[in-house]
Nucleic acid binder design. Structure first.
Lengths: 254, 254
DNA sequence: AAGTGGTCTAGACCACGGG
DNA sequence: CCGTGGTCTAGACCACTTC
């Protein structure tokens, strides 16, 4: 015999998946559910908490609890079959293939100096606590928060360069690094998922229970790491696409 | 003024991050915390639920609530600079680089026939509901559940072949497909993250709040999809590694 | 003002794990 | 046995939204 709150959650889940509770629709209020299932309001709230953690519903004070729309994922390319390495590295962000890349728009860029955490130091080949120059960007597609980008540069690479200033880098940061004597010759991507921190939670307006995907790209020039870039996406709306070998052109799953 | 349960959560979070509560250590019991913070036990439980959802602690009935060990991630390779395409595709699973691949061990393989979901059908170029042959594997590293692999084959490809039988494929499934007239010529990877379903939750013995990473690989032969393989990892212990261009050999971050 | 979810209390009994 | 977390109740008051 499953606990009562799990039974209530199961009934509501079933109503959501069979369509009798549609996306956007309001659930019965907590007192109504309590009466319907002969339970206390706290027990009903336990059931709703379970559904919230699974990303099925979201509650708003004063309004009610609503079935979430299934997320339409955006897709970012990790590689392109036909792009030259230059093209592939020119853009600061990973290219977006769906929907149209034109909608992409950067709205905020913060440049600051900080000390390297253990993880950052390890990848940049410096000591934890060493100064690094950090460029933080927030990108939107239309008005939807799409990704956070945090780039870390060793001080000896970026000190006294336009990288230290806020504002767009006209030639692209890869081009600028090449001009500075650090042509990008390769990179390593590490891909992981975790629960968001408070900043990420707020930026993406996440529902509780939604993870983020993190792509950590360490770029190298002549065997020396020159940059670490972290691309952070909300897990429920991002798909990373990678193509290898010959595949038909019809792989663009919406 | 933040709600009391958030204040309690914040205090406990601070004790965890500053080391006064160490990984593996038991938290004070719920009645003790209630007394310490002059709160009811339900309020303490709200605070603990918040920490659980963030993957910081886990509770076990009859024992207590414990600070989780920070996960030591395993790393799987999405690409290798020096491997030939054949080497790269020979293994059913993505190669593990850390720790030693020798520890990898498959313990369970189930082969069944089912009907294609919308997502599977779309990628295999068939109709939803069409029959597909499904091979499900569970892999461990040592005795740690490491990944789930679900492979979907169109019936006209796999019907009457060893793919339909349980048991290892001696030449590797890619070699077998080539013998059957479907040499693998390319693939598309789609990478995403989501919260686990019940099967995944049990297999990985996940704590509430841990996402899974899913790599969906569609393999093509002569412009025709011949297989869809889903590699499912627990998000807190998996890192996917991808190398492009020339990088030093020291990128093996433990 | 009325209805919603958010927070909180002070109890109760149950299920599990270890001595 | 006892102490742990798991479930559940029946209230209360607060904060937010809409009318």
């Amino acid at each position: 015999m499953a606990p009562k709150y799990q039974q209530i959650a199961e009934r509501l889940r079933a109503q959501i998946s069979n369509g009798s509770l549609r996306p956007g629709q309001r659930l019965p209020s907590e007192p109504e559910l309590a009466a319907e299932y002969d339970a206390s309001r706290n027990t009903v709230r336990l059931a709703i908490a379970a559904l919230t953690n699974q990303g099925l519903v979201t509650s708003r004070q004063g309004l009610g609890t609503f079935v979430l729309e299934p997320a339409r994922p955006f897709t970012a390319l990790l590689s392109r079959t036909k792009a030259t390495p230059d093209e592939q590295h020119a853009s600061m962000s990973l290219p977006v293939v769906s929907p149209a890349a034109d909608e992409s728009e950067m709205v905020r860029l913060i440049v600051e100096t900080g000390s390297a955490s253990r993880n950052v130091a390890e990848r940049l080949g410096i000591e934890p606590g060493d100064q690094v120059i950090i460029r933080r960007s927030q990108l939107f597609i239309g008005d939807v928060p799409w990704q956070l980008i945090n780039s870390y540069y060793p001080t000896d690479v970026a000190k006294g360069t336009p990288l230290e200033q806020a504002g767009r880098i006209e030639t692209g940061s890869v081009g600028l690094l090449a001009q500075l004597g650090y042509p990008q010759q390769g990179f390593v991507d590490e891909i992981g998922a975790r629960m968001p921190d408070a900043t990420e939670f707020d930026f993406f307006k996440l529902a509780s229970g939604t993870p983020v995907i993190v792509v950590s790209r360490t770029s190298y020039s002549s065997d020396r790491p020159i940059r670490l870039t972290r691309y952070i996406y909300r897990g429920d709306r991002a798909r990373l696409l990678r193509v290898e070998g010959n595949v038909p052109d019809t792989y663009r799953h919406a």
